[in-house]
Amino acid sequence: MSAAGERAPFGARLAAAMAAHGPLCVGIDPHASLLDAWGLPDDAEGLRRFALTVMEAVGGRVAAVKPQAAFFERHGSRGLAVLEEVVAAGRDAGTLVVVDAKRGDIGSTMGAYADAFLRDGSPLAGDALTVSPFLGFGSLAPAVDLALTAGRGLFVLCLTSNPEGRDVQHAVAPDPTTGAPRSVAAAVAAQAAALNAGAHPLGSVGLVVGATVGDAARSTGTDLVAVNGPLLAPGVGAQGAGPDELRAVFGEARGRVLASSSRGVLRAGPDVSSLRAAALRAAQEAAAALG
């Protein structure tokens, strides 16, 4: 379904995809080292063969794929053309595409990013986009408005696993409404919760929360259950986080987690059947870890 008027909200489509295929998102991260491991040249043609082989293997078999835009952009305009092919392949296969571009800016620039990655008719517009709120959540308004109008979704960076992220995400400032102290991460989650209010089964504004951040949600007062949206979680299963770690990170919000696996699946290539088997195994592991 291509028209926004016919497209169900992203949250509802993602919930259905997770129910059908398990809570796995396969990251498409064409590192130069992975291209080399697959015997491919580090150029646009190698990138294309890599990305479309992954889509052949997992399209229609996993809940979502997540192409990392940077690894396409490094090959210039021909690389962006491959990203457009990945988005189209996901649409043809009925697999949700989360474009991992982590865009975040202000005013007309954010509006242009939204237009590129969320507007109907744009060849770069998948089903959802990762965005950064650290210029202020309000700076994301053009992306929020266009995503929700077009039936697409956002994953907003909230609690990431990189050590440097704590400097900003755990920082405490007065709430602009109440004056009470609140962490940046808690404020981001509260804004997402407000946008998802009343949505069923899932809202369309999710968060990115690393599966290896330990008790960060609790220590920062970040209410992941109240978000009522999907939680994109790098680091589940073979990448380091098992059931005990996931209970500590997500608590009662575990049922809303979309586990992201990249190298754990991609290193099985370039054989299509091996990639497919690795993805199905990762989906089963994620479901078990999040159960």
Rank of each mutant, 00 (worst) to 15 (best):
S139F: 02
S139I: 05
S139D: 03
L140D: 00
A141R: 01
P142S: 14
P142F: 10
A143V: 02
V144R: 00
L146P: 02
L146G: 03
A147R: 13
T149M: 07
A150I: 10
A150V: 10
G151M: 04
G151H: 04
G153T: 08
L154A: 08
L154R: 10
L154G: 04
L154V: 05
F155D: 04
F155L: 13
V156F: 07
V156M: 06
V156L: 05
L157Q: 06
L157Y: 04
C158R: 04
L159D: 13
L159W: 09
T160S: 11
T160F: 11
T160Q: 11
S161I: 10
P163T: 10
E164K: 07
E164S: 15
G165E: 06
G165Y: 04
G165Q: 08
R166P: 01
D167M: 02
D167S: 13
V168A: 14
V168P: 12
Q169H: 05
Q169F: 14
H170F: 15
A171T: 10
A171P: 03
A171K: 06
V172S: 09
A173E: 13
A173Y: 15
D175F: 14
D175E: 06
P176Y: 06
T178A: 14
T178G: 08
A180E: 15
A180M: 13
S183V: 06
V184R: 02
A185L: 08
A186T: 04
